[in-house]
Simulated assay, not measured.
Amino acid sequence: MTTLQAPTTGAAALACARRGWHVFPLRPGDKRPALRNDWEGRATTDPARIRRCWNHAPYNVGIACGPSGLVVVDLDMPKRRETPPPEWNMPGVNEGADVLAVLSERHGEPFPLDTFTVITRRGGTHLYFTPPPGAELRNTSGRHTTGVGWLIDTRACGGYVVAPGSFVDLPDGAGPYRIVNDVPPAPLPAWLARLLTAPRPAPSLGANSVAGTVADLPAYVQAALKGEAARVADAVTGGRNHALNKAAYNLGRLTGAGVLDHETAATVLFEAAAVHFGPTRADVTPAEARATIRSALAAGARNPRTITRGNLA
């Protein structure tokens, strides 16, 4: 497979670059970045750089959505034994495409089919769009309350997608990413743009056992908890552990300053990470999350944040 994959994915990377899309290497046969850090900043359209990189190894191809001027709507398939949440438990709703069809109908709009479209290795769909002028859309997760609907993820600034021409082989499914509608990306439908820019519920601040504690904290600390929980919950594949580590370090600095207790910080972070728990290498396990939270909170506590009176208002 390696011998056949190398020229195919290299050609796929160059094809993306010709469209003006910034690419970077993913691990061969995988969805995770091959770069250790700053994959978004290092993504490129330079053919010479791309040839050098893909001549080195049979990397899969990632498209950095932000620099590429893309918003990609990912209509996912349910994982094994996954059932819909109560609000989407209705006849005919079995996958992300069904959810988008319901949302389209509710808004009195057609299903947005006329755009660049890719079928993913598990039978899901990537719909490529261009963002509204001046908008800076971020990522959303369909398995979290900040998403637009069950099994609908969106990738924009700070996110990436696996490019067509890649082949992913993971325990939950193997297969290629294939173009099925090779047209220029259409502008993001206005009704979808409104959903993605409308205020949405803040991420959960942990289990019921800490809810009262959070409510009693200073406004500055509550805002920090909400922001770091959102960072973790909205992280994309390949950046989830990094996001959890950064969030735990930042909250650890508050525990070191004495304005946030360790148990509350750890519980909020674990609840935010739980949206990514799953059985595959692309997911996060509870044990991994606990280990990252424990070490990063401790590291942050060793570098406590200086808290001024204004912060605590």
Rank of each mutant, 00 (worst) to 15 (best):
L151P: 00
A298I: 15
G159A: 06
D46L: 11
R240W: 03
G258Y: 00
V183F: 04
V161Q: 11
N60R: 06
G41D: 01
F270N: 08
A273I: 12
P86A: 15
L14V: 08
R49G: 05
V284Q: 14
H56G: 02
P199C: 03
A243G: 07
R106T: 10
P67C: 07
A257K: 10
P85S: 10
N60A: 08
P58V: 09
G300A: 12
S295W: 00
C53A: 09
A282W: 02
I293P: 00
D30S: 09
V180Y: 03
G175F: 00
R138T: 15
E136I: 06
P84C: 09
P176V: 06
L269Y: 06
V275L: 08
R294F: 10
D261R: 15
I293T: 09
R80S: 08
P110Q: 07
S166N: 07
I179A: 04
A207H: 02
Y128E: 01
A174E: 04
Q222Y: 05
G159L: 01
R81A: 13
E228R: 15
L269M: 12
V118K: 01
T45E: 09
L14A: 10
A15L: 11
V102I: 13
V275R: 03
A190G: 14
N139Q: 13
T2G: 06
N181M: 10
T2P: 02
L244F: 02
L195T: 09
A243E: 04
V161H: 09
L192E: 08
R121N: 08
D76E: 12
G227S: 14
L297P: 05
P304F: 01
P304Q: 11
S204N: 06
A223I: 11
A17K: 14
G158C: 05
D283H: 12
A64F: 08
V71P: 00
H56I: 14
G165R: 05
Y59C: 05
L4S: 13
N37K: 15
G212R: 11
A274F: 03
Q5H: 07
G108M: 10
R309S: 13
R27L: 14
P67M: 08
D234F: 06
A291W: 04
T115K: 13
L196W: 04
R281F: 03
G227P: 02
P304M: 07
P201W: 07
E95G: 07
A11N: 14
D76K: 10
R27T: 11
E95P: 01
R49V: 03
M90G: 08
C16V: 08
H126L: 12
P85G: 07
L217P: 02
A257I: 15
A229F: 03
R178D: 04
A219Q: 05
E228T: 15
H126A: 11
M90L: 13
N250W: 00
L297W: 01
A198W: 00
L4E: 13
T292P: 00
D172H: 11
L151D: 04
P86Q: 12
L297D: 06
A6S: 10
P199L: 03
S141F: 03
L170S: 12
R309Q: 13
A257Q: 11
P184Y: 02
F116K: 08
G62H: 03
V221I: 14
R240K: 15
A282K: 12
E263G: 09
R200F: 06
P132N: 09
S209K: 12
A273F: 06
